[in-house]
C-alpha cells in the first residue's frame, strides 16, 4: 500500500513527517543500522531488534557476560540516532536520588531547587542494573514506566524520546540482585549479545580503535524522522488473521506444560508493538506472522520461565515451543 499521492501539498501545512512513506522510513532505519554496524560488528539482528524496541517506545535489557560490547551497542545506538546519551553505572550503594535527582536547599533563594539526576536524558544506559539494590532498581523502573519522575511531590517529565538500555550480568555471578519477574516485564525486549563470530572478532582485534570512531559517529537520522517513525508504529495495520495468530501464541504459552506461567496481556501487547515496529523497519504497512516470529524470542524470552520439570532447557529451546505454533 502506498500512501495516496498528494499533488503539490502546500508546504506550510505539511511537515516532512506527514509525507514519509513506509519506504522512506525503511531507508532511514537501514541507514541507522548500517552506521551502527560499522562499530558493532556482526550484530545486525541485535541492532535491528534494539531499534525496533526504541521505535515501539519500549525499553531494552541486554543480558550477557561482561566485555561482549553491551555498553558499546547502547552508545552506538544513541550516537547514530543523534540522541543525548548518559551512562549510569549501578552499584550496590547507588541510591534512587543518585538517579532521579534531588531537591537541594539553595541558600541564595532560600528555597529548595530540584537538581535533575542523570536519568534526565534521551538514552540512558543503566549499566549492570542487577548490581543495585531493589529499591534503586524500582526507582529506575518506575521512571521507565511513567516517563516521568516524582521527587518530593513534584512531577518532572522526562525528555522524548526516552529510551532505557539496561545491561545486566547473568544473575549467577556474585553480588547481584536479580530483577524480579514483575520488573523484567517492564522491559519490552531482552537481548543476548553473545560472542562475536570469528570474522567479526578478527576485525575487532585487528582494526583501529573503535572508541575513536564512536566519538566521531554522526547521526544517521533526524529527530523528526525518529519521532514520526515512533508515531507511525501503532498505525501499522494488524489484520484479524494476525490477531488470531497472536492469540493462538498467547493461549499456547498459557497452556503449554513447558512454561511455569503464560504470557501476560502486557506481553501480548508488547509482542504486537514490537512486531509493528519490526514491520515498519522492513518497510511494510502491515504485520505478517514472520514479524512476530522474529521478535518473539526477544520479547517473550525474559517473561517466560521453564516449568520445574523442564528447568534445564535453554531459552532458545523454550522459544522454539512458541515459534513452532502453527499459523492459523
Amino acid at each position: 500500500m502506498s500512501a495516496p499521492k498528494l499533488p503539490n501539498p502546500p508546504a506550510a501545512t505539511y511537515n516532512d513527517s506527514a509525507v514519509l512513506t513506509p519506504q522512506d522510513l525503511k531507508l532511514a532505519c537501514e541507514q541507522v543500522i548500517a552506521a551502527a554496524g560499522q562499530i558493532v560488528l556482526g550484530k545486525d539482528v541485535e541492532l535491528r531488534l534494539a531499534l525496533a524496541c526504541l521505535l515501539a517506545r519500549g525499553h531494552l535489557l541486554i543480558e550477557d557476560l561482561p566485555g561482549v560490547g553491551k555498553t558499546t551497542l547502547a552508545h552506538v545506538l544513541a550516537k547514530t540516532l543523534g540522541l543525548e546519551f548518559r551512562r549510569l553505572q549501578f552499584t550496590s550503594d547507588l541510591l534512587p536520588a543518585d538517579i532521579l535527582g534531588a531537591s537541594v536547599y539553595d541558600r541564595a533563594n532560600a528555597s529548595f531547587t530540584f537538581h535533575p539526576g542523570p536519568i534526565f536524558t534521551q538514552v540512558v544506559l543503566a549499566d549492570e542494573v542487577n548490581r543495585a539494590t531493589p529499591k534503586t532498581q524500582s526507582a529506575l523502573l518506575e521512571a521507565m514506566e511513567e516517563n516521568q519522575v516524582t521527587v518530593e511531590g513534584e512531577t518532572y517529565t522526562l525528555p522524548t524520546p526516552f529510551f532505557v538500555i539496561a545491561t545486566q550480568n547473568p544473575s549467577h555471578q556474585v553480588g547481584t540482585f536479580a530483577l524480579p519477574e514483575s520488573q523484567l516485564d517492564r522491559f519490552l525486549m531482552r537481548l543476548h549479545l553473545g560472542y562475536p563470530d570469528a570474522k567479526a572478532e578478527r576485525a575487532l582485534l585487528t582494526g583501529s580503535d573503535r572508541r575513536e570512531a564512536l566519538r566521531e559517529l554522526p547521526p544517521a537520522i533526524s529527530l523528526t524522522t525518529l519521532l514520526s517513525a515512533q508515531s507511525k508504529v501503532p498505525q501499522v495495520h494488524v489484520s484479524d488473521a494476525l490477531v488470531d495468530y497472536l492469540q493462538t501464541l498467547l493461549l499456547h504459552s498459557r497452556q503449554s506444560p513447558y512454561f511455569r506461567h503464560g504470557l501476560s496481556p502486557r506481553a501480548g501487547l508488547g509482542l504486537l508493538r514490537a512486531a509493528q515496529a519490526w514491520a515498519l523497519i522492513a518497510g511494510r504497512g502491515h504485520v505478517v506472522p514472520e514479524d512476530v516470529q522474529e521478535i518473539l524470542p526477544a520479547v517473550a524470552g525474559h517473561r517466560l520461565q521453564a516449568a520445574a520439570e523442564h528447568g534445564d532447557l535453554p531459552t532458545a529451546a523454550l522459544m522454539e515451543q512458541l515459534t513452532t505454533v502453527p499459523i492459523p
Binding site: 514472520e290 516470529q293 513452532t324 505454533v325 502453527p326 499459523i327
Partner: peptide, 9 residues
C-alpha cells in the same frame, strides 16, 4: 509447508 512457517519464509 510446516504449520508454523510464514508465507515469506
Amino acid at each position: 509447508r510446516a504449520p508454523h512457517e510464514g508465507p515469506t519464509a
